[in-house]
Simulated scan of single mutants.
Amino acid sequence: MAEGFRYHQGRPSDDEVVAGIQSGVVAFDANVLLNFYEADPKTRRKRVELLGMLGDSLFIPFQVKEEFHRRRKESARSVSKEYAALRTAVAELKKVGAAFGRVNKATSKSRDPVSVSKARNVITECIHDLLGQIENLEREDPHIVDLAEDPVLAGLVSVFEGHVAEIPSARKIAKRVREFVEIRVPLGIPPGFRDVTKGDEAQAAGDYLIWSELIGCAKSRQVDLVFVTDDLKSDWWVEGSRENPTAAHPSLIAEFGRETAGRRYFQVTANEFFARAVRALGDPPVDRTSIDMSNTDPYEGEFEDGPTSPGLIASVLDDSLYMEISRSEPPF
C-alpha cells in the first residue's frame, strides 16, 4: 500500500549514476551536442573521446539527430556572431566620434576647431586600434569553427556510426505529435509542454518525440537509461534552480519505470555526466563493435498509441505533413 503512494523524487547518488553509465544506455540531447561548438578544441576532443568509450551503450535518438542538424550552423556561428556584435558596437562609437564638437546651429555656439580636430583624431585612432584588436582576437580564437571542415561534426560522426536510431514511421510520429498536442500539453505532462508555442506542432513536440524514443530504446533493450540534457526547463527538472537543477521531474521517472517494466531513469546535465564519465568508463574498451541499426527498427510496435494513453489517439496526421528522409543519408 505504501509503495503505491510513493512519490519519485530526489537526485540519484554519484554511485548510481556511474553504475547507470556502466551498465545501461546513455543518450544525449541535441543541446549537449550543439554546445560542443562553444567548447575549446582540447575540451571538445576529450568529450568526443569519452563518447566513443561508451561503445554499444551509446544511443542517439533520431529526433536528436534532426534537431542537431537543423541548428548546427547557427551554433557553429555563435562565437563569430559575438565578434560581429562587438564590431557593430564600435560602428556606433564611430558615429559618436564624428559628432564630437559639432557646431550647435541653434545657439550659434562653436568650439575651437584645433581642439576638436585633435579630439576626433584621438577617437579615430582608438577606434581603428580597437577594430584591429577585435580582428586579431577573432582570428586567433580557438572556439571559431570553420563550417567547411566542421571538426565538431566530423568528431561526432566518427563515434555515432551505428548508434543513431532509425527514423520512426510517419504514422508513429504523427500519433506522438497528436498525443502531445491533445493530451499531454492540456494536462501538463512532461516533457516538453513548456515548448507548446515553439514553431509548428511537430517542432513543439520535439522533446516528447525524444522522450518516446528513449522509452522505446530502454524497453527494447531492457536496460536502465541515462539521459544527458542541458534543457533546464521545469518540464524536465524540479526542486532546483535553472542553473542547478536538483532532480528529474518525478512524472518522468514514474512514466519511464511504468513503460519499461521497472527500469531506472537517470537524468544529468552535460557537466555532471562528463565529471562522472571518467570514473565510470576508465580506459577505452578493447572491443568497440557497434550495433548495426541501419536496417532494423528496435522500436517497432512499442506503445503504438503512445506511452501514457493507449487507445486515446483516434486519428493521425497525414504522412504528407512530414519530411521524407532518404534512407541513404549519412548516419548522423
Rank of each mutant, 00 (worst) to 15 (best):
T88I: 01
R176K: 08
E201Q: 14
S23M: 08
V116D: 03
F100V: 11
Y37M: 07
L225N: 02
A89T: 02
N35I: 02
T308F: 11
A275Y: 10
G24N: 02
G306V: 07
S234M: 11
D14Y: 09
R102F: 04
D129P: 00
P41T: 04
R176G: 06
F332V: 00
A148V: 11
D319M: 02
A202P: 00
T107K: 13
T289I: 06
P113E: 10
S309I: 00
D283I: 06
S234N: 14
A174V: 03
L58W: 09
E140M: 13
L209A: 02
D318M: 11
D200Y: 08
S23C: 05
S158R: 05
I167E: 15
K94E: 14
V159C: 07
G188W: 04
P151M: 08
E135C: 01
D40V: 13
I183P: 02
Q9G: 12
K233Y: 02
R184T: 00
G257S: 05
I123D: 03
R139N: 10
P41W: 07
T124F: 13
L54H: 10
D319N: 14
Q133C: 09
L58N: 07
E125M: 12
E135M: 04
A204T: 01
L50I: 12
E74I: 12
T246H: 13
V185F: 01
P12W: 12
E300K: 14
F303H: 14
